[in-house]
Structure formats: C-alpha cells, structure tokens
Write a protein that binds this DNA or RNA. Sequence first.
DNA 1: GCTATTTACTGGTATATACCAATATAAATA
DNA 2: TATTTATATTGGTATATACCAGTAAATAGC
Lengths: 239, 239
Amino acid sequence: MLRNDIPVYVQVRDQLWQWIQEQQLDSQARLPAERELASRFNTTRVTVRQALGQLEAEGIIFRSNRRGWYITPQRLIYDPSLDIGFYNTVTEQGFTPSTETLSKRLIEAPSWLADISGMAEGAPIYHILRRRSVDLRCVVVEHNYINPRGCPGLLDQDTDLSIWLLLREQYDLVPGKRNIEIFPQALTGVEAEALGVNSGSAGLYMQRLTLDKSGAFLEYDREYWIHDALKVAVQVNNN
Amino acid sequence: MLRNDIPVYVQVRDQLWQWIQEQQLDSQARLPAERELASRFNTTRVTVRQALGQLEAEGIIFRSNRRGWYITPQRLIYDPSLDIGFYNTVTEQGFTPSTETLSKRLIEAPSWLADISGMAEGAPIYHILRRRSVDLRCVVVEHNYINPRGCPGLLDQDTDLSIWLLLREQYDLVPGKRNIEIFPQALTGVEAEALGVNSGSAGLYMQRLTLDKSGAFLEYDREYWIHDALKVAVQVNNN
DNA sequence: GCTATTTACTGGTATATACCAATATAAATA
DNA sequence: TATTTATATTGGTATATACCAGTAAATAGC
C-alpha cells in the first residue's frame, strides 16, 4: 500500500480525503480521533497530525479546541462592496447567523484612526466589537468605528443585527465610496481568543473605509475571518 | 527565562520575532539554521519548527526549499479591479518584477469554462500560463483564458509583459464589468510545484471574469498567490 | 583558472514516547 | 431528577532521535 517515493503524510492526507468523500460526511461531522487514525493508517500521531494540518489548510476540515476534527461547511459568499449585511447574506444562503456584541462604547479617535478617517485625533467615535457565527461556528470578529455625527444614540440600539440597516433606516445614512483591503493574515491575540482558535491559525483580514455621498467619513471596519469560512465576491464596473 | 504557563513554542516565536526586529534584518535576509536556533533556545528542532511555522503563518518569514528561512518582503499592494497590470504595479512600488510564460496555446473551451464565460463548449479560447516574481521571489501562478475574437494572433506576441496592455494598445479592447472572487486556499499540485513551495502551503486564490463594454466575454483568469505576498486593495463606488 | 566531484550543511520527513489541559462521559451524590 | 464529582478521552505540547533529499561550499582534478 505504502509507496516509497511519496511522503507518508501526503498518502494519509489523500486517503483521508478520499475516505471523507466516500463516507459522504455531512458538514460539521466529526472525524475519528487522531490515535484511531494513527493506528488505522499504521503510523504515528505526529504524522497523522501533519496530514490533518494539510487538510485544514485546504479548508476540508477544521478543528474545535480539544474536541476533535470536523468537516468544514461550505464557504459563505460575501460581497464587501455592498451593504447587505451579515445577517441577510447568511440567511439568503441557507445558513443560520448569530451575532454577539462583545463591547460598544464611545472612544476618542487614536492617531492611526484619525489618519485613516481624516477626523481629528481625540474626536469622539463609536467603537463596536462583535463576534459573528454561521451555524453556531464563530467565523469573524469585527471592529466597527463609526462617525457619530448623523447617528446620535446609535449605541443604545440593538447592534446584534445589521448596523448598515440601522444607519439606513433609522438615520438615513447611505454609503458612497468604499476603500477595501483584503489579505491573508494569521489570527493572534484577542481575535484568536474571541474566535476560539489557536494563536497563529490562518485567517483572512478585511478592512473597509466607507465615506458618505458627500465624501465625509462614515465608517471604518476591521474584520478578522477564519480562513476557510468565506469567499469574497466583488462586482466592479470601471469606466 | 522560561515560563511554565506559556507554551515553549510561543515563547520561541515571540523571542525570535523580537530578535528579528532588534537585528533590523533586511528583506530576504537569512535566519540562522534550525539546529542553531534549537540550541540557542535550548529546545528541540521540532519545537523550533513549530515556532517558525507560526511566524510563517503571520507572514514574518518564509522558507525556501531546503535552503533556509528568510525575512518576508513587504506585501505588494494590488488592485484587481483595474487593468494596470502586474509589471506596472510592481515597479511603481519599487520592486523588480519578472514573468515567465510557462505555456500558451489555443484550447477548446471545457464545460466549466463554457459555463463561466457563456461561450459554447469546445469554442476556441487562448490559454496562457504564467509565473510571476517580485525581486526574484515567485509570488503567483496565473491562468489566463482569453476570447480570441477581437485579438487574433495574440499568442504570437510577447506575453512576458502585460496582457492588458496588449489588449488595449494592439487590439483596442477595454474591460467593462468585472466579477472578482477571492479566498484563502492552500497551494497544491501544479501551482505549488510551479511556485516552488510545498504542497499544502497557504495561498490566496483570486479569479476574475471580465466582460467588454458590450457585455461579451473578454477574459477569465485564475491566480494562485503566495499567502504573504500581496494585499488586495479595491476601490468601489456603489450608486 | 576552470570544471567536476566530493563533502558538509540545510530543511523535510518519520518514529516512539510522554505528559498536560480541556472536554465529554459516566458515576456518585444530593 | 438534578447536580456534583470522578474518570476516560481528546487534542495540544514537548523531547529525543534518525535518516533522507536537496543545496551550497570545499576540494580535487584538469
């Protein structure tokens, strides 16, 4: 069975992948324990973990802290150029969203935020920190920084749903230009902890700077996504 | 020095990161050998490699096959919504680009490409496969699928530079609507091999479907990026 | 001075083993 | 029945060791 010219962990990876397909395991189904797999493939746990790590990198499986390995759900398709909102995006694709507001308060703009937003350093800005899940799996931690001008009392509202919906329906604020940045980045520190993953896990960072129709600063947000949870889809029309 | 409540590999990771900053190592500078680091931190190579793997995930360092670990260069800032092209993007940011055309030929559109492009299955389509580097480091492998209508003889041109430049200047083709998809994905198979990285390395997948002004299929491309090589920046204006 | 060969070194893979920390389950207790 | 406690199981971390494969440097030969 074992070939000499192909590393064992690659063979385990591929056989495991084939086995997953044959079993037609459901999303979030649990894999056998590492020790069980090690004996089944007649190798050690170290090598099995190397194979599991590869399947994790490919987005086939994910780990839940000391509970086991599970089949990764389908990626959420997400368009950061629109203001549809997380809740609608998730439900429209047949998943169940949930949001926890971890903190919301009025802060004084630090220098980095002043630079980005064009506001004065120390100016009042709403800061909202939320953790959002798809089918009970935490997928993103999100920092929202919102210009309070035009939306007084925002923090008294329920922020477990869409902020964009609030801004549009309650305050009549609509976005104009957006500046989006996206790149892969490991999850560390508070973000990793909030998402319940190991520090150093693969992630996707996405930030958005949104101005209103008149070009004034409206909102800036930083999102830390689990690497296998989403597919970014943007429609662009360059004239 | 060693604390009991923090994992050794985390301490090694953080001390190594601190050391890198203190040394003010240049981009692409080489780190000491793993065995050297292991003895310096008084631990084993396995643990050192765990720490190195974390710094790699964070984009601090990268590995070159059996040659060693190096400091990661700054990310390339890249706007896939424009047709500035790789060459100009890289040079404008002070780096040195290079491109190798690995293959270019006329193929018959397979069903998946027909579905995406709206062309008939089996219809002729140009396929160009290129590998592109920044400062001699391979960063992306790119598949271009181009509608030959409007650009006959494209394959006879030099494709080591910008294809968009060719399309615009030689054939007067300009892009209209774009549909972009981006998500983290491990590099495997031919892409990993072409980039000279291990199968299963972290990467970023990006695809673009571009239509011309009249809405006809112009180009579709699939790009496989090294995870630490770029930052995607998109400007959007939603009206 | 150049080329080909050898040698040393590097990261890559693999085994065996051990203990820890968090979780889930089973058993005991109220 | 509900709650608490003990136990088993799971993944997480760590050491020690060995050999392999590709790269780079040193050496020998011309």
